[in-house]
Structures are given as C-alpha cells and as structure tokens.
Design a protein around this nucleic acid. Structure first.
Lengths: 133, 133
DNA sequence: ATTTTTTTTGCAACTAAGTTGCACTTATTC
DNA sequence: GAATAAGTGCAACTTAGTTGCAAAAAAAAT
C-alpha cells in the first residue's frame, strides 16, 4: 500500500518490509500498543521491533507512553495531543483531551528553578464504569 | 531510636530490624530514592528491600514515583503532596507544589466516561539551570 | 544494470529490575 | 516461655529490553 511507504519516506526513513509491516499494525490500532503486541502481530524478531520503535520515536512518527504497566506503549504521533486515563482494575485506556499544561509550565519553572521544561507526563488512573459497578 | 519504631507501630507494622534500617535510610534522604540505593545502603537482601517497599506503600508510609528512569523511586508520604521536574540531562530532581489536579479531574471524567479517578501521574522533564548553560 | 556502500535485520547471548518458592528466623500473642 | 503468625534471605526465575556481530537488503555510485 502506497500510504505506508509514503509515511516512511516523509520521515526520511528507508522503506523496508519490516517497517511497512509495523506501520500497518500501528495504523490498525486506535489504542496505544506494547512492543510485545507488535512482536506477536508482526512476527518480526523482537530486536527489530524494539529498534524500529526507537527509530520511529526519534523521527517523531510515534509517541512513547508510560502508563505504569511495567512496559512502554506506543501510538502514532499524527493524532492530536492528548492524555490517558487507565482503569486500575481492567486496564482499559481512554483518551483525555490535551491538558492545561501551558498554564502549569510557568509554575513548574518558578517552583523548581529549572531553565526549561521540554516534556511532561500526565496520566490518570481510576475505575471505568464497568469496573465501578 | 524511638522515632522510627513509632513510625512502624503507627502504621500497624511489625517492628523488625530490617524495617527500622529502611525507615532510617528513607528519613536520611530528602529526594526520592531507588530500591537499588536502599539495597546498597542497608546491606539487606534485595528481596527484603523490594517486599518492604511494597508493604510500606500499601500502608501509606511511602509514595512510589515513576520518573521514567526504568526503575521506581520512593519517598516518605509524610511530606506535603507535590510533583517533580527531572533534568533530562543530569537527572537532578526538584519539587513542584501540588498541582491544579482538582480542576482537571472533572474534565478527565467527562472526556473519558470513567466513574472515578483515584490517582494520577504528573511529572515534568526539562533542563536545570546548570545543564541549560 | 551491476557493483559498491550503507543501513537494516535477526540470531544468540546478555543485562537490569523485580518476583516466586521455600526453609529458616524473628516478632507478637497466649 | 511456648505457640503462632509474620518477616527474612537464599537460589532460581521472569520480563522487558539491549548488545555484538554476521548475513541480507536498500539506496547510491558507476
């Protein structure tokens, strides 16, 4: 499929079969996925999956997310920025629109004496309606 | 020292030598510390350290913090709630006063359709003044 | 189009953080 | 002080991810 090839080319990445397979699987999922999931779905060697994930993150194609599950998750970066809320019971993940981070940044700098804030993690944990019932 | 014994008793925990040693080391540090640091400082078996950390967290004595360093950090929960900003260059950690989380909670519930938010992670990453210079 | 160069891939072996099973020891309860 | 319950430490294991290196595949040069 031309679309997936273009995604790689647009990001100045070599077009290889493993990368096309990974882009395809990543596009098929609307929720963040783990390296483990990609290894199983793509049947690629785990080293290839881990290395490709890093490459994609470096090129800004993917976002790396830590939802306290002992492993990192990945989602395509072409979606609008947002945060996540994770059910601590069943693990379901829902989106939360981009946060009020801008207004917090100055407070962070003031409190800490840091020079710059370049990134932040803001994730929420709770119970989804099913698990709360 | 009576103080450390009391901390354990107040939290309905058995008073044992390893626990007293751990409380002592935890009190000696104002910044969050890793399990590794505690293992090295206390000379206790790593299994004991990991299990005691979990016990302390369950009893509300400790807070567990994930600052994306591939390992969890721990700090005493008797300090006022706050967040952290981490220098992505040198790793130094500074505190940020409790966040505007209350005002975000309703937004999170609205966006996600969750029933409850019980916890959140909100950490910042950037450059401290030294590393930015 | 073929050769050369460069990058990517996959295997095997490794690492780091943390966990589990189990016998032994140490606190608290009676 | 004996019985009971909980905590400790060793060895061995697990899980997520990494490193070295030779073979394979892309892109660049001819």
């Amino acid at each position: 499929m031309k679309k997936h090839t273009d995604i790689l080319l647009n990001n100045k990445l070599r077009v290889t079969e493993p990368r096309l397979v990974m882009v395809k699987v990543l596009h098929s999922q609307s929720k963040p996925v783990s390296a483990e999931y990609l290894i199983q779905k793509t049947q690629l060697d785990k080293v290839t999956v881990y290395r490709t994930l890093h490459t994609f993150v470096e090129h800004g194609l993917l976002r790396e997310i830590d939802l306290r599950q002992g492993k990192l998750l990945y989602e395509l970066a072409d979606r609008p920025e947002h945060h996540h809320v994770v059910c601590t019971d069943c693990g379901v993940i829902e989106d939360v629109d981009a946060c009020v981070f801008e207004s917090l940044q100055s407070k962070v700098l003031r409190d800490s004496g840091f020079a710059k804030v370049t990134d932040h993690a803001m994730e929420f944990f709770g119970l989804c309606k099913q698990c709360d019932a």
